[in-house]
């Protein structure tokens, strides 16, 4: 790894390695002492080893194990290769799979179509620098610093049928005690379908602020003269935003898109803390975890689900790498 290390021209100036600087580097390279080369090798080598050893190696392991049957007990010699059997069972004999898959898609759709645009809207409004912007911004951003596990608890404080805010509020407004009485109270987290929607509301509470901050940073970098020019040309606010500002935000859009997709696929804490992903709250991440934690693990089966999750996430990851690093590769 340390074979060809030389000081490089920062891309900020050169935008990547040009053939001429390449030659210059090779000359420089000989100037680096052996010790420097060793230092550089270790500076990259140790962290890279840790990263590859704990992430990429297990990822490959997931792929291999997905074609096997193993209950996780005994040595590796107990592993049996069974071809695509795990995938067949997953698709046809495993009732929790499709609902979980569907939930992941709904989660993604809700975040992309509702939470993210809302975050963007808040960013645009707050970018106008009205009075009190800092306060609004702080309030909207506050949930982002909480873990989704805490968000899960706070959601329970809001949703609990007898003790929660919503139902008690309904009693106070309507004067009718039925809203918190057993049997007639709406069970926000116990009713399948409804409970997933309520989880999305709670998770969205956090996601909106996240998206807002990313866009606020992006909007700040938009050159004001562009807007002024648009204003002079007689464009209204909406036209200015969609025709002038939004295109400039393209890099942010990539980040937000990828963050949204990845967060949707990673979602775990909130449903696990509410009911371990049972009763309509299943997600792929929870099903995989349940197949490892538990008295008897289905290692191959869990791995097959992990591979499905990998296949879904690989697209956005490649897209992101291409968009952010593609230019440097040229």
């Amino acid at each position: 790894m340390s074979s060809s290390s030389v000081p490089s021209a920062p891309p900020a100036a050169a935008g990547g390695a040009s053939p001429s600087t390449g030659r210059k580097r090779r000359k420089r390279f000989s100037l680096l002492t052996r010790r420097d080369k060793l230092t550089l090798g270790l500076m990259v080598g140790i962290p890279a080893f840790i990263h590859i050893f704990l992430i990429w190696m297990p990822m490959l392991g997931s792929i291999v194990l997905s074609f096997t049957s193993w209950n996780g007990i005994g040595g590796l010699d107990k592993i049996k290769f069974i071809g695509f059997k795990n995938y067949e069972n997953l698709f046809s004999n495993y009732p929790p799979f499709w609902p979980a898959f569907e939930n992941n898609l709904i989660w993604l759709a809700a975040f992309l179509l509702i939470a993210t645009p809302l975050g963007m809207l808040m960013a645009v409004i707050l970018d106008q620098n009205l009075k009190g912007t800092r306060i609004y911004q702080s309030v909207l951003y506050m949930p982002v610093v909480l873990s989704l596990a805490i968000v899960g608890f706070i959601a329970q404080l809001m949703y609990s049928p007898n003790m929660g805010f919503i139902n008690n509020f309904l009693v106070a407004v309507t004067g009718d005690p039925k809203w918190t009485a057993s049997g007639t109270a709406i069970d926000w987290l116990g009713t399948p379908g409804l409970n997933f929607a309520m989880v999305l509301v709670a998770a969205g509470w956090r996601h909106v602020g996240y998206v807002m901050v990313l866009y606020l940073a992006g909007l700040k970098s938009v050159d004001n003269t562009l807007r002024e020019a648009a204003a002079i040309d007689g464009a209204n606010a909406r036209q200015t935003f969609f025709r002038v500002v939004f295109p400039v935000l393209a890099p942010i859009n990539v980040v937000v898109l990828v963050v949204t997709i990845i967060e949707s696929l990673r979602a775990f804490d909130i449903v696990y803390i509410i009911n371990k992903g049972l009763n309509g709250l299943g997600l792929l991440s929870v099903l995989i975890t349940n197949n490892i934690l538990g008295e008897a693990s289905l290692i191959g089966f869990g791995s097959a689900m992990a591979v499905i999750l990998l296949l879904i996430s690989i697209g956005p990851i490649i897209y992101y790498l291409a968009r952010t690093m593609g230019r440097e590769a040229e």
Partner: peptide, 20 residues
């Protein structure tokens, strides 16, 4: 019964499906 059958991805979920 066997633990992988009784667990969260198995009978726990099935019985909830029935109750729903």
């Amino acid at each position: 019964t066997r633990p992988d059958f009784a667990g969260a991805n198995g009978m726990q979920g099935f019985l909830q499906t029935f109750l729903k």
